[in-house]
Simulated scan of single mutants.
Amino acid sequence: MITSTDIFTITNQKQFEKIALKVFRFQYENNPVYHEFCDFLKTDVQKVKSIIQIPFLPIQFFKSHSVVSNSNPVQATFTSSGTTGMTTSKHIVTDVSMYEESYRKGFSQFYGNIENYVILALLPSYLEREGSSLIYMVEDLIQLSNHSESGFYLNNHDELIKKLIDLDQAGQNVILIGVTYALLDLIEKSSFKLQNTIIMETGGMKGKRKEMIREELHEQLCHGFGVQAIHSEYGMTELLSQAYSLGEGVFECPSWMQILIRDTEDALSYVTEGKTGGINVIDLANINSCSFIATQDLGKKNANGTFEVLGRFDNSDIRGCNLMVL
């Protein structure tokens, strides 16, 4: 039996591989969707001896199937955002404590003690719908910060502007977590010279503005907020873990999460470091659904294990996810 202790105390690559292979076998036996997918690929489970031999489930399966690895009662169902008429992803969670432990430990690994920060959240498009895993996480982080000034903001930009300036001038450490378009709206209303504040964007224009390349976006945000770097969070509905970038769009995973870069022409093979391909995520916290997910994001991996997100596959030509055949 694989426990949360096994997963969240990984300290080296050998340990990671050993637990990942155990999780793979567990999910093959207990997740009917993943089992069928592996069988379709004619995977000989006994011959899978390294993580690069593990099949990665295309992320679109979360839109059409219940991807679950046990029969325990459902504790939460996280859903993706989507424009009207779009099919959204559903992540069925049978043990929400795994999610809580993952994001709490992940935050601590990159930022230290949460009680050292005021957490301000500007996440309008997420707040305005049900089932957001991001809102679940940020709400908990706000509570854990144990600070009366922490909280969510919707359209009350003037109040947020005043609070940001007051807290920053008082020398208080602040993290402002914001959806990209809302952060841009904020710096159009006011310019800042923040000394003690981390700006963390969670990505996405949500159809409110034209998409921008990261360099241009971060340059605008750095200028508007008066900060040296923009932090980013890389997570998604289908995962229970997040990678973080402390600047320059270079992401690092917590010790129980890794990414591989698959070939865009051949989804079952991998490209070398520094080359662009599709992002495959291993998220061992996802033990109760699927820990091996082929995303629709494009990226590249660096020699030190960090990675960059470079865009998304064009939906009309998702060659890297050409395993959607079941």
Score class of each variant (00 low, 15 high):
Tyr136Ser: 08
Asn116Lys: 14
Glu115Thr: 14
Asp140Asn: 15
Pro124Glu: 09
Leu134Cys: 11
Leu123Trp: 12
His147Glu: 13
Leu123Tyr: 10
Gly131Gln: 02
Tyr136Met: 05
Asn116Pro: 00
Ile135Leu: 13
Glu128Ser: 15
Leu123Phe: 12
Tyr117Val: 11
Val138Thr: 05
Leu122Met: 11
Met137Gly: 01
Asp140Lys: 14
Tyr126Met: 14
Leu122Arg: 04
Glu139Gln: 13
Arg129Asp: 07
Glu115Trp: 01
Tyr126Asp: 14
Ser133Arg: 02
Leu144Met: 13
Gly131Lys: 06
Ala121Trp: 01
Asp140Gln: 14
Ser132Pro: 10
Met137Ala: 10
Gly131Met: 05
Leu127Ser: 06
Glu115Asp: 09
Glu115Gln: 15
Ile135Asn: 04
Ile119Cys: 05
Glu128Val: 03
Ala121Leu: 07
Val118Ala: 15
Glu130Arg: 14
Ile135Val: 15
Glu130Ala: 11
Ala121Glu: 05
Asn146Ala: 12
Leu134Asn: 01
Leu144Phe: 08
Ile114Met: 07
Ser145Gly: 12
His147Val: 02
Asn146Gln: 12
Leu141Ser: 05
Gln143Phe: 12
Leu144Gly: 04
Glu128Gln: 15
Val118Lys: 02
Val118Gly: 01
Ser145Trp: 00
Ser132Tyr: 08
Ile114Ala: 07
Ile114Trp: 04
Asn116Tyr: 00
Leu134Ala: 12
Pro124Ser: 11
Leu127Gln: 14
Tyr126Cys: 13
Leu141Thr: 05
Leu127Ala: 06
Ser125Ala: 14
Leu127His: 01
Leu134Gln: 05
Tyr136Pro: 09
Ile114Asp: 00
Asn116Gly: 09
Asn146Leu: 06
Ser125Cys: 11
Glu130Lys: 14
Tyr136Trp: 10
Ser125Ile: 09
Glu139Val: 03
Ser145Thr: 08
Glu115Pro: 04
Glu115Ile: 07
Glu130Pro: 01
Met137Glu: 05
Ile135Cys: 09
Val138Glu: 00
Gly131Ile: 06
Glu128Leu: 14
Leu122Cys: 06
Leu120Phe: 04
Ser132Gln: 10
Val118Phe: 02
Asn146Arg: 13
Val118Trp: 02
Ser145Val: 10
Ser132Met: 08
His147Ile: 03
Val118Arg: 01
Leu144Ala: 12
Leu141Phe: 06
Glu128Asp: 13
Leu120Gln: 10
Ser133Tyr: 01
Asn146Phe: 07
Leu127Thr: 04
Ile142Cys: 06
Arg129Pro: 10
Val118Ser: 09
Tyr126Phe: 13
Leu134Tyr: 10
Leu127Asn: 13
Glu128Trp: 08
Ser125Gln: 13
Ser133Thr: 10
Tyr126Gly: 09
Arg129Lys: 15
Leu141Ile: 09
Asp140Ile: 06
Glu130Val: 07
Tyr136Ile: 03
Tyr136Asn: 10
Asp140Thr: 12
Ser132Ile: 05
Ala121Arg: 06
Val118Tyr: 00
Asn146Lys: 15
Leu127Phe: 01
Ile142Lys: 00
Arg129Leu: 10
Leu127Glu: 08
Leu123Asn: 02
Met137Arg: 04
Tyr136Lys: 12
Ser133Met: 06
Ile135Glu: 07
Tyr136His: 13
Leu120His: 08
Tyr136Glu: 04
Ile114Tyr: 07
Glu139Phe: 07
Asn146Gly: 11
Leu127Asp: 02
Leu122Ser: 06
Ser125Asp: 13
Ser145Pro: 04
Ser125His: 02
Ile142Ala: 02
Tyr126His: 13
His147Phe: 02
Met137Thr: 04
Ser125Pro: 11
Glu139Ile: 03
Val118Pro: 00
Met137Ile: 12
Ser133Phe: 03
Glu115Phe: 02
Glu130Trp: 06
